[in-house]
């Protein structure tokens, strides 16, 4: 049964519903918890670990932990910010993220998190993995160089029967997200656009739609990621 609970985030008392995850409750209270794999309305995965918070002293992912009454949550501590920053740096060196030539630059959440954390250059050596670009689909391009394996597309893009259009292929370090060869054929223009929007990086692109927004007007050109959440007027708290 739903009930109203009180939680404490960084010393601020917040009101939440007991059926909410920490990340949702925080968002409604005007507190931004950074994340890459979480997407509103899509089943959480807890994959990227960027939303890691301390709940009653223990590290938990805010996107998969439901709130409970009296929870004490640490979010903006030096330790957690450092941890999140390291994950973003690891993701930047693990793939081939050539921002200057990327269609998603300026609208990319990975890049936006790097900006938010003030990353000037990653502290880790670049791996430059050899990966393919699959442009065989008539509507979309799947660039494996940029994929961060967050599974957002697999969870969010489904047909009317609930079957995923995207899927994991292979295992371990060779794992990659591919378009299902049968379901992919029926991909509508709307779903293709949704797939591009859901992708936090530039790994899924709708053909002939790159570089549509001019530099200076893109999503994260002027305002950091999360500032929309932090700037809302709080009525609930």
């Amino acid at each position: 049964m739903n009930k109203v609970v009180k939680i404490d985030i960084d010393g601020l008392e917040c009101i939440a519903n007991s059926d909410q995850y920490i990340i949702e409750a925080a968002r409604e209270n005007g507190i931004y918890i950074p994340t890459l794999c979480n997407y509103p309305g899509v089943k959480p995965k807890g994959g990227c670990r960027i939303c890691t918070v301390r709940v009653n002293g223990k590290q938990m992912t805010a996107c998969t932990t439901p709130v409970s009454d009296g929870m004490r949550i640490e979010n903006n501590t030096e330790e957690l910010i450092n941890l999140r920053k390291s994950i973003v740096e690891l993701l930047l060196v693990e793939g081939n993220h050539f921002c200057p030539s990327c269609e998603k630059s300026g609208n990319c959440e990975l890049q936006a998190l790097a900006y938010r954390f003030g990353i000037m250059a990653p502290r880790f050596p670049y791996l430059f993995p050899v990966r393919k670009v699959d442009a065989s689909h008539p509507k979309i391009i799947k660039d494996q160089n940029r994929c961060i394996l967050c599974k957002r597309c697999i969870r969010a893009i489904t047909d009317e029967k609930g079957r995923s259009v995207f899927a994991y292929r292979r295992r371990s370090s060779r794992v990659e997200v591919v378009v299902d060869s049968k379901l992919g054929k029926q991909l509508t223009d709307e779903l293709a656009q949704k797939a591009m929007d859901v992708c936090p990086v530039g790994s899924i692109l709708v053909k002939e739609k790159g570089f549509i927004t001019p530099i200076g007007e893109r999503k994260y050109d002027k305002n950091p990621i999360g500032s929309d959440i932090e700037n809302i007027t709080i009525t609930k708290r």
Binding site: N96, F98, C99, P100, S101, M120, A121, P122, Y126, F128, P129, V130, R131
Partner: peptide
């Protein structure tokens, strides 16, 4: 000082790395 993406991460010339 590393000035720009190419100095920092190889940049567009590094697209030949694969």
């Amino acid at each position: 000082i590393s000035l720009g993406e190419c100095a920092i991460m190889g940049g567009l010339p590094a697209m030949r790395n694969g």
